[in-house]
């Protein structure tokens, strides 16, 4: 187990390294001059050059990369030779000259929004997805199963922006059950927080639950016909024990791990939901950084979200190894 852990952590570090290198390479070989993108219409070559210098873009890519990585661990200073050097504390993911702010603090402001959005949706979709999926599997072919599968098919095939707009139109505009969303932190105004998050949670949870209901149903049906479940029955165990301890334990493990990865994907920002409901999360930040061609911010967000996913992969795999003894020896 320990060797497995070490191996997996090393693999993760290697992946992170490759990932950050490729993000850097990508921006280095991309057509267009990033320095040119930093200033608007009233641009002179002199401004471009000074921006290039401030961004460190006049240095060779390798130097840029080393500075970026060391910035994460020990911090760095931009425009060190200018009269107003900009200090960026560790962990420094860069400095957005467009927004005059450290990338890390921009992210730190948006991340909680996305975090609450993702976690809330995750809890709803896991509970609903697993419960309905298991119910459908155990009642295969009956009307309950058909109803659940029919509804999940609708949810599954509905484009997210469309469902989001429907929710906004009916719940907020037409019926006025909820006010227009205005995000506040839960510790500032819990009531308003829930009012704001309710529809985004429902939107995301619906999309994922629809998928997870089908996944769970198929998985449960499959394990129910597995040989070891038949063995459990042949021992004369009560049906409950057969289903819960033998079938579900084995059948749901891969689903929960898949959900862990989906959660990680959401933590990197739920672009459509955040935009529909004006939530200042990572997805919204990413979109606006692209619109503004804010290169340091784009780089920071890309690397951070990818790191979250790689890390989640590690956590999920380790959890899997804890649950399934077969994994450890491989």
């Amino acid at each position: 187990m320990f060797a497995y852990l070490v191996r997996r952590v090393l693999l993760m570090l290697m992946l992170l390294f490759l990932l950050s290198v490729s993000v850097f390479l990508l921006f280095a070989i991309l057509p267009g001059d990033p320095a040119r993108l930093t200033c608007g219409k009233a641009c002179t070559p002199a401004i471009i050059e000074s921006n290039r210098h401030r961004l460190g873009l006049d240095e060779p890519p390798l130097t840029q990369y080393v500075k970026f990585v060391s910035g994460i661990f020990v911090g760095r200073t931009f425009s060190a030779d200018s009269p107003q050097p900009i200090k960026c504390d560790a962990p420094c993911l860069g400095y957005s000259f467009n927004r005059q702010e450290q990338v890390m603090s921009l992210i730190a402001r948006s991340a909680p929004v996305t975090f609450f959005l993702a976690i809330g949706a995750f809890v709803i979709w896991i509970v609903v997805g697993l419960a309905l999926g298991i119910f459908a599997a155990l009642n295969r072919g009956r009307w309950g199963d058909r109803l659940i599968m029919g509804i999940s098919l609708i949810g599954y095939s509905m484009p997210s922006f469309f469902l989001g707009l429907l929710l906004v139109f009916f719940v907020i505009i037409k019926w006025q059950f909820l006010p227009f969303p205005a995000y506040v932190a839960p510790w500032e105004n819990p009531f308003q927080f829930f009012q704001t998050m309710l529809l985004p949670w429902i939107l995301l949870a619906t999309l994922y639950a629809a998928f997870y209901i089908r996944l769970t149903r198929n998985q449960v049906l499959e394990v129910l016909s597995d040989d070891y479940v038949r063995t459990a029955r042949a021992k004369g165990l009560p049906e409950r024990t057969v289903v819960v301890k033998h079938a579900l334990r084995a059948g749901l493990t891969p689903i929960v791990t898949a959900a862990g990865l989906d959660l990680a994907g959401l933590l990197g920002g739920a672009i459509i939901s955040e935009n529909i409901f004006s939530l200042p999360g990572l997805g919204a930040l990413a979109i606006s950084s692209i619109i503004d061609s804010d290169l340091p911010l784009i780089t920071g967000i890309t690397i951070l979200t990818a790191a979250i996913i790689i890390f989640a992969n590690l956590v999920v795999d380790l959890l899997y190894a804890v649950v399934d003894p077969r994994v450890r020896v491989i």
């Binding site: 597995d226 040989d227 070891y228 038949r230 459990a232 042949a234 004369g236 049906e239 084995a250």
Partner: peptide
Amino acid sequence: PQREVQELMGMEIAMIFQDPMSSLHPF
């Protein structure tokens, strides 16, 4: 009734299956 069948299974009647690889619970 199912309850009584359960009491017999594994107690009065037991079964061995073809594939020992998949007949034991892997976890």
